[in-house]
Design a binder for these strands. Structure first.
Lengths: 332, 332
DNA sequence: TTGTAAGCGTTATCAG
DNA sequence: CTGATAACGCTTACAA
């Protein structure tokens, strides 16, 4: 690979001059030498070493996105948002799959810090009980001292710009929608119990139920995946009279509930209405009523904050209930 | 951040010695000094600069995965495979979303080359007609000369280890499955017309139909997404008598077909059987008959080849038809 | 407007 | 076993 030294030699200039024309520096360079350098660079197919540049500028144009599960479209949508705006300014995005393990997050944070990453985006929620959190907080701190900006798109226990949706309101709104359809006996399927997001959504469910004077106690253990939803449906079927409606912890869990219910011959939405949260792609596949979250925008805003230092206003982005065919008005 | 110089100063050694103990070098170092260095490193919270290291070793432990659409679970599954084995050896994975644009691929290849990426994985199929291909081939070549290994998980027009599934056989097998269920009038929904993968799958459909003495001409334009499948279903409904069965270009398109058909009151699989290809997560959500592809394994094998230079044997991985509820035996 | 030279934080080559 | 010292490829004062 041709280096700056090669270019300068061929153009008959110093490396400094070559560097100046090749990296939009404001330092003045005569048109003549500029042209010679450009030509030499073209001839040799020059491509700068981002590594060397990052070493001296102490910033690498790398943005790390740490997700809980790369296969989950929730995170894919966020990553897409980050990538789209990052790509525009020549930044590179690393999507790191922590697989719901806090130690894996730590590992990635260290690796990203080693590359002097310009920013870290934590797409997923924290797990307050995990003992690896102290270590993670330390690693994040180290990354910051190396100049990395930190953005959290869900609740986290370390400093950083917190930017996201109001999960309590999200769950409250979808529950209210169900209540508005005439349902009274409404169940919630909880997300992974260790996550803040699960707790928030459950709280939102309770707020809506309590405000309507309904029993907020019908809660089933669940998770964020299809299988968890199916299992919750089975437990529901065993637990006595079916609810009028169910709020899933997220879309995939809700889809699992629908599947589990239908497998047992229950009519959805005829007998039971089911709603999810997130409005990821699969929601459309099964015509699922859900809450649309600005995932792409969240990712984009995170990237903008990292790149431009933009203050990111507002900090809480709006959501919206999307009624579809998995919920229906209560009859009888 | 503490640097090697800081460590050596505190430990009373040279940077060379400090470096030797801190990066599992085989060069002998006395236990006493080793201990002093270790302690100094611990005290100062030393973390090596991957940038500086990569600059001098000329290899960065970065693996780039270039995908057509990061929201597509097909690619997510592959990325997961890459990441899992890469993570074990401290490699960092960059998932780059080219959004089906060849120029975007070029852009990412250049960026990865600038970071001296150790390997590039092209997860998606090439688009032979695109004029940006020449540029891409050039960029890939440049990345190779900088020492990057290239793996293609679908057909591509530049050199690199080609590793994948036999898409012709994949489509043939699922078509034969449909034929085995007694269907005679079978339609295919084509993928994005510009991709090799689409052409291969269509060819496989034709092979099976022709071998069975059936009409292979019932082909509808489509794509790889839900909306394309729905649109194909509408065209199918307008085109006269419905087919007995449909092979979708992939799972999402097949799900679109099912949805489109059902919206028109068609019973799937009662009236029409529908099958997909890929066996991504959503296939289970809608109980879709499909072909399971070793996506995770493909990604893992690609990573192994890049990291260990393993020859990756076999080059073509096995697939398997997975019958589910969207297909049924023909009656009457 | 151009050039010189001092780093950035490592690793690697050679002497000691 | 240990230590200077020269790279790696680039940016950026500081001089000229």
């Amino acid at each position: 690979m041709a280096s700056l030294a090669d270019i300068s030699r061929r153009a008959g200039t110093s490396v400094a001059t070559a560097s100046r024309v090749l990296n939009g520096s404001t330092h003045p360079v005569s048109e003549a030498t500029r042209a010679r350098v450009m030509e030499a660079a073209a001839d040799l197919g020059y491509q700068p070493s981002a590594l060397a540049r990052a070493l001296v500028t102490r910033s690498s144009r790398i943005i790390g996105v740490i997700v809980n599960d790369i296969v989950d479209p929730y995170f894919a949508e966020i990553a897409r948002g980050v990538e789209d705006v990052a790509g525009r300014s020549g930044h590179l995005v690393m999507v790191c799959n922590a697989d719901h393990r806090v130690e894996a997050e730590s590992k990635y944070v260290r690796a990203l810090r080693d590359y002097h990453a310009e920013g870290l985006v934590f797409a997923g929620s924290g797990a307050p009980g995990d003992e690896a959190n102290a270590q993670l907080a330390q690693d994040v701190e180290a990354a910051r001292t190396r100049g990395g900006r930190v953005v959290c798109l869900a609740q986290r226990d370390f400093p950083g710009l917190h930017l996201g949706v109001d999960n309590v309101a999200v769950a409250r709104d979808v529950t209210e929608h169900l209540i508005g359809l005439g349902h009274r006996r409404i169940a919630a399927v909880e997300g992974p119990p260790e996550l803040y997001t699960s707790a928030d959504r459950l709280a939102g469910f309770r707020v809506a139920m309590t405000a309507a004077g309904l029993d907020a106690g019908l809660v089933f253990a669940g998770g964020f995946d299809f299988e968890a939803g199916q299992a919750a449906a089975r437990r529901m079927l065993d637990a006595g009279p079916l609810p009028d409606a169910v709020v899933g912890a997220n879309d995939e869990a809700a889809i699992g509930v629908i599947t589990g219910l239908r497998q047992a011959g229950v009519d959805v939405p005829g007998d039971v209405s089911v709603a999810g949260i997130d409005d990821t792609r699969p929601a459309r596949f099964v015509d699922l009523t859900t809450v649309s979250l600005p995932l792409y925008d969240l990712g984009a805003a995170a990237a903008r904050h990292i790149i431009e230092g933009a203050p990111a206003d507002p900090l809480t982005l709006a959501h919206r209930v999307v009624p579809r065919g998995s919920t229906a008005r209560r009859v009888g």
